[in-house]
Design a protein around this nucleic acid. Sequence first.
RNA 1: GCGGGUGUGGCGGAAUUGGUAGACGCGCCAGACUUAGGAUCUGGUUUCGAGAGAAGUAAGGGUUCGAGUCCCUUCAUCCGCACCA
Length: 928
Amino acid sequence: MDYNFIEIEKKWQQYWRDNKIYKVEIDHNKPKFYVLDMFPYPSGAGLHVGHPLGYITSDIYARYKRLKGFNVLHPMGYDAYGLPAEQYAIQTGTHPAVTTEKNINRYREQMDKIGFCYDWDREVRTCEPSYYKWTQWTFIQLFNSYYCNGCKQAQPIGKLVAYFEEYGTVGLNVAESKPMSFTAAEWKAMSEKEQQEVLMNYRLAYQAEAMVNWCPELGTVLANDEVADGLSVRGGFPVVRKSMKQWLLRITAYADRLLEGLDTVDWSESVKDIQRNWIGKSMGASVIFKVDGKDIDLEVFTTRADTLFGTTFMVLAPEHELVSAITTDEHRAEVEEYITRTKNRSERERMAEVRKVSGAFTGAYGINPITGAKLPIWIADYVLMGYGTGAIMAVPGHDSRDFAFARHFSLPIVQVVKQPGTEPSDPATWEESFDAKDGELVNSGFLNGLTVKKAIERMIGELEKLGVGTGKTNYRLRDAIFSRQRYWGEPFPIYYKDGMPYAMDESKLPLELPAIDEYKPTETGEPPLARAKNWVTEEGYPIETNTMPGFAGSSGYYFRYQDPHNDKEYFSREANDYWQNVDLYIGGAEHATGHLIYSRFWCKFLHDIGLSCKDEPFQRMINQGMIQGRSNFVYRIIGTNKFVSFGLKDSYEVTPIHVDINFVKNDILNIEQFKHWQPDFNDAEFILEDGKYVCGTEVEKMSKSKYNVQNPDDLVEKYGADTLRLYEMFLGPLEQSKPWDTQGIEGTFRFVRKLWRLYHNENNELCISDEPATAPELKSLHKLIKKEEEGVESISFNTVVSAFMICVNELSELKCNKREILDPLCVMVSPYAPHIAEELWHLLGHDTSVVNATFPVYDESKTVENSFNYPVSFNGKMRFSMELPVTMNQDEIQAAVLAAPESAKWIEGKQVRKVIYVPKKIVNIVVG
RNA sequence: GCGGGUGUGGCGGAAUUGGUAGACGCGCCAGACUUAGGAUCUGGUUUCGAGAGAAGUAAGGGUUCGAGUCCCUUCAUCCGCACCA
């Protein structure tokens, strides 16, 4: 073969490794650039063609930036803690570290074959003690910090203690789990244990009894983003709500900064929106309602304070702590029955019953603080304990959920907002509530005639004046539950003294994961670490048996790459000052509410405590789309072993069956291979069309069960890594999902060979001329330089690959073999196809790596022509084109075009009304 | 329901930021070379039409000399959130 990719790729991969070509160090003479991939969890299945898509993109970007003179940090590592290896351990007894190591090696092998330019000396693995030492260290810092709302940053807990000693809680404005109130004297009078309990209310990493998503099957709790539709994202097991003592991170303290930071990063609008939605900031008011005849206050949260005149009842969440206190004896049985009923449902059942109205009356009444009206208080599960105060003022006229509830239980509905330009009507005739915020207040005393927006302000002012309410902001975001009842994760550097948790001294880190005999929970239901022998401190205090969740290790890994071997600190000041944050981050959008929020929180905290110079981790982010599979089908006639070709299948009753895409080429089935595939098919019969069996196709998720998986290793073996890289980029825009066309790769393979032939003669001998390049050759080259520069910045590598093809086609046509052209062309191709480029580069006589070459400089003058082929349109429709000198002015062009023989028939019988002339664009003649 | 994205040949997709729609590639068709072709090379390939030409970027309307691109309405589809008061 002329172009021997197998040999070339092996040779240069070895050369890059041996010469440490991809090793980077801080270099103050060059600007830095940090290109990062979301590091993978090494699963047992290995990589399919979808995985490297992002890695190839970042690799090209990194190589390009390097050619442009940047010092590029481009590392890779492994998110090595995870449930699958642990589930496997429970089943087989194999230590998860063993499984993980094996999978990592397989990943590495696959990645190496594709020729990535990672600096592997910087590799991190979240499960290595040298790495998780710093995960544990950060946890201790979080434990020892609180959040000051005034200065909007984390502060050492010692400062809070000092404050308590002097002022107690007077004037305190900090993030807290619940409001507390005590004097300095009271603080000083507390026992150590009591003081520790108080501090738990403020720590950024704290322990609390929390309603959690408990997954019995996995034997652990899960974070909100790890649960979907009431099932665990990993494994799809049922999840139930349960109250348990858990570690949490006070991420809610950072809600506003997490929201504001989104405006400073260059991410897709959709991911930013998902995060905004997840944080769920809503501004409204807190209003206090007295309970009639009792000395009890009910606090509600509303965004529609303007509708206070329209509230006709109140609703509490069934779990609300005051339910029992307000319920009258007459209604107690009914209320308790309702609470039991709602409590015993799983998350999944609850979600399935959404919109099914249910509730119970407590017999109590609230007093409207503005009108003094008596409002019946109900409990219903449409009010969630986890949001606001778990109690609402219901305004059925202007809230669709309250409306449905009122209709169901025949509660009164009144109108207090009307659409501008309409008259109020009888709510009894309504089919739905009027929820829109563009309206005008009616039946509302001092609010009448105001717009909704004005009325909200006015009402909050009134509430504050009366001391029965205040403006308030609420968030949907919840504190992140940070403990898992699992083995394969970071142990907490926490021990218990007198039942209270204390952070270990930093000098004890890393606290290594102990060996245990079995990976299951104990018989008494304690986490697996409870099986560890001597899981106590030197002083004999018991150590925490929970471990950290998957996102612990992945929240700060991008920092560790900056200084991966530092055993004195997380990363040095010097390294962080230089590398700062990630300039380009590439990975999946599915991490929008998990990793990408936790990482931002982690970074902001490290910024607050003076470690990170930046407070956002990922400046620019691109989310790659999924590569879908293109499945093939055969059609078996029901009740037979006869298969009918695609075009004829409609005449029969058939079952479509997935067939391995390896037996199919251009949708034609290889019948012999198919027959030998599975015993059932050995004696299959076929109804053919034109002597062939044509398969049906469908675009679906790429998966083993659909027999449509393309394995990158096979493609590298068949076409070479360079062809695979080019093809993955050529497929289409990175961010879009698109199907993998098994045939299409042939086109890029032809291109690579055509590129090779440009540098060689028919005998496969290098054939390069030192003669100066001609104008058309230079033009072709410089057009490409421009196209590539534009394409890289906008990450539209598909258009760059097509520009390569155009350029190579043109140069082949011109029979160009000039060094002046082929030398820079080789550099330009190298980010995309590094192996063939390195080979050609050395054949061209260079003795250093093409990786360290310089990107050619675009010269506009090489692309200009002295004439332009003008499209000539009549009334906007293109009719013919005309080559005209660029030196002509408008009058000359106009005259030339009108005089052209082709113009005559379009002008004939009409008048030329106007001529539009846009230089180097178009000539348009308006006739009529 | 709310929020975001996407609709261009048989397929993947291009179209300087309003200026020749369909680049590039796959597939398909024809030809060349071959014992052979599922190898390679050359040419063709939006649709209708013999042709001149006409139509054409999800559908309809608008702005403009000119719209795939801007504005309005509708539809389809994908993703996220979903009793969040």
